[in-house]
Simulated scan of single mutants.
Amino acid sequence: MKGFSATSVIGLADALIHWQLFFVLVTAAGLHQAPSNFAAFCVAAAFSFYVNALYTFERDTSVLLYVMFIGVMGAVSLGVGGMADAWRLPGLVTVTSFSLLNILLGWCFFRFVLFREKQV
């Protein structure tokens, strides 16, 4: 249960970082939702990766796999933000929908790819 509870708390912190940075970039910096969502994701993902590596999974991982994770989920964040820009959706819809995707896909990637159990 340690993995689930720790991942949940880290995921909540990740979402808070993502949402705050997204809204600062959209409102204060005047950026579109796509680049704001991507930048917010990158910062929040770096936090999650570091904290999960230290406290939840307690093992090293490949930098290549981490870059792959950032690439795939970064593309998803750009896609969600791009659709929101094109359809003129409110920022709250953008971060909510991406956060749900990020929780589901991110947890699966962290658990089964990035920090998978080593086969002996």
Rank of each mutant, 00 (worst) to 15 (best):
A39D: 00
I17W: 03
A86W: 15
A44I: 00
V43G: 02
L31F: 14
A45I: 08
A40P: 02
N52F: 06
G91V: 11
F49V: 01
A28L: 11
A86Q: 14
P35F: 02
V51L: 09
A86R: 14
A40H: 03
H32W: 11
A34H: 07
G81L: 05
Y50Q: 12
T94C: 15
V93E: 03
V93T: 15
V76D: 00
A39W: 01
A45Q: 13
L64V: 13
F47K: 08
G79A: 05
L21I: 15
Q33L: 01
S77P: 00
A29Y: 07
Q20L: 14
F22D: 04
D14R: 04
V43L: 12
V51C: 08
N52T: 09
V24E: 06
A53G: 11
A75H: 02
Y55G: 11
H32Y: 12
G30T: 08
G30M: 06
F57V: 06
V24L: 14
V72K: 05
Q33C: 00
L16N: 03
V67P: 06
W87V: 11
T61M: 04
Y50R: 14
F47W: 14
A15Y: 15
C42A: 15
T61E: 02
Y66Q: 12
V63F: 13
A15S: 11
F57M: 05
F22R: 04
A15K: 05
L78Y: 00
V72T: 10
A45Y: 04
S77E: 00
F38W: 14
F69M: 09
F38S: 01
W19P: 01
L78T: 00
F47C: 08
F23R: 05
V51Y: 09
L31V: 05
V93P: 03
L31S: 08
Y66M: 10
L89N: 05
L31I: 07
Y66V: 10
A28C: 04
F23V: 07
Q20W: 11
H18V: 02
L54G: 13
W87N: 06
V24Q: 12
F57E: 04
R88S: 15
D60L: 10
L92Q: 14
F23P: 06
V95C: 04
V80S: 00
A29N: 03
D14H: 13
A84G: 12
A29H: 05
